[in-house]
Nucleic acid binder design. Structure first.
Lengths: 238, 238
DNA sequence: GGGCCGTGAATCCTATAGGAAAGATGACGC
DNA sequence: GCGTCATCTTTCCTATAGGATTCACGGCCC
């Protein structure tokens, strides 16, 4: 488990960062399920490191909402988003991200537009298989698109607000085991946003972003219906 | 529930939390100034604890934006907000908090309104001297008012967005050495928001909150002009 | 005089050890 | 059979030690 000659993932960098990414990958992959206790010592043994970096990584993960911390009782994996929570997340994104797009459009420059275009191109060529390692690059490109817009506002508090939602983390966590389901639609909508920005029309950019988030919400709702009307009423298995 | 449950375990607490509060107090008090390096070992020696809790406390403080972390070079105190950044903060708050107030108003109950009223009462009787220890209770009551509204939305992502701004942390940090300057106005505006909520008028609640944030912004701008002429202009995004 | 480089101190990062509390397991008594 | 209690294991939390790295300072060379 820890002895794998092929992966010497103990490099000369901050170990806490490596642990952070590893735990994040396991969370995305579904290896760690909702409510699982995330023991500090246990994780340290499993990864072959000491508890100190694990402690620091978990302290940072806590701010993402993926893990929850009880005062003297350790960390636990945050429960998967329920349908209502997913809708809440989309409502919050609808408040913040269209606004970001509008502001960013007023400050758009050619280099910025090119970066957006590049992220869309990366999105097109990224695989989107069922495992997190498969769709990781897709996830990164998608996140980069939205983050670029948030950062382009020039307002670091809007960036912080966008970050705090953890929209992509929570959304893509639901893809664990199934893969990205709405790649085609997402790429189309990203392109529409970019075009509105190219035209220099802030109102159109806002509307395009709102339409995109709305589309994500609708598709997420449909997926949630398809997979399982789970967790609302825990019916005993016959 | 049980108020008189054993008190013995209360004295046992996580040391990292105490370190967190202590560093926060020093930041608020101005004992730690912008750009100061915040050495882990040094802080540990100063507080008489080991580096491990300090490390965890700093990792959590990083998400508040009060300290910044360089990969292998330690932590530093984040620079004080410039005039432009303060305006950016208020712009972000104007996006989020009026919306929160509107949603919260639609779900207001008597207990919620009473809690709001209580926070305003606490605000009235709280001292607001120059040291952080003086206006700490004022700060807590003010923060509680806004947080109650955010939490009343029932949308934890809106709460997270509100948290991420760190509005009160940054705003009150500027009060270090001078004390709260706008207590009277703030109390009045809080009362107006509460009255709108009592009337059950979401649009009025939104407007009252927007007026409050606008008032805070105007007063902060005036203070900034008094203390130091704004030399820093909004710099273009990279 | 200015730039480059070696040495030393300070600091960060990680590992290990031990005390304390919570939870689990099993035995005992009713 | 069921509740209670003692014991044990697990886990969290803190302290300490040591390797690795960075920054500062002084000397040396051009």
């Amino acid at each position: 488990m820890n002895e794998d000659a092929g992966r010497a993932w103990v490099q000369r960098s901050v170990l806490a960062d490596q642990v952070y990414k590893e735990i994040l990958a396991q969370l995305m992959d579904g290896k760690l399920e909702s409510g699982d206790p995330l023991s500090i010592d246990g994780t340290a043994r499993e990864l072959g490191v000491s508890p100190t970096p694990v402690r620091e990584a978990l302290a940072r993960l806590e701010s993402t909402g993926l893990v929850v911390r009880a005062a003297l009782r350790g960390y636990r994996v945050a429960p998967m988003l329920s349908y209502a929570e997913l809708m809440d997340l989309m409502a919050a994104r609808l408040l913040i991200e269209p606004h970001n797009a509008e502001i960013a459009c007023t400050r758009a420059e050619e280099s910025f537009l090119r970066e957006l275009e590049e992220s869309i191109a990366d999105l097109r060529q990224a695989p989107n298989g069922p495992q997190f390692s498969d769709y990781r690059s897709y996830w990164e490109a998608d996140e980069r698109f939205h983050r670029l817009i948030a950062e382009r506002t020039g307002n670091k508090f809007l960036v912080a607000a966008y970050d705090s939602l953890g929209g992509h983390v929570h959304r893509f966590r639901l893809f664990g085991g199934t893969g990205v389901g709405d790649a085609r639609s997402a790429i189309e909508e990203h392109t529409l946003i970019l075009e509105a920005m190219r035209r220099g029309n802030p109102a159109a950019a806002r509307e395009a972003m709102a339409a995109h988030i709305g589309g994500v919400r609708a598709r997420a709702a449909r997926e949630a219906e398809l997979t399982a009307p789970r967790t609302q009423e825990a019916r005993p298995v016959p």
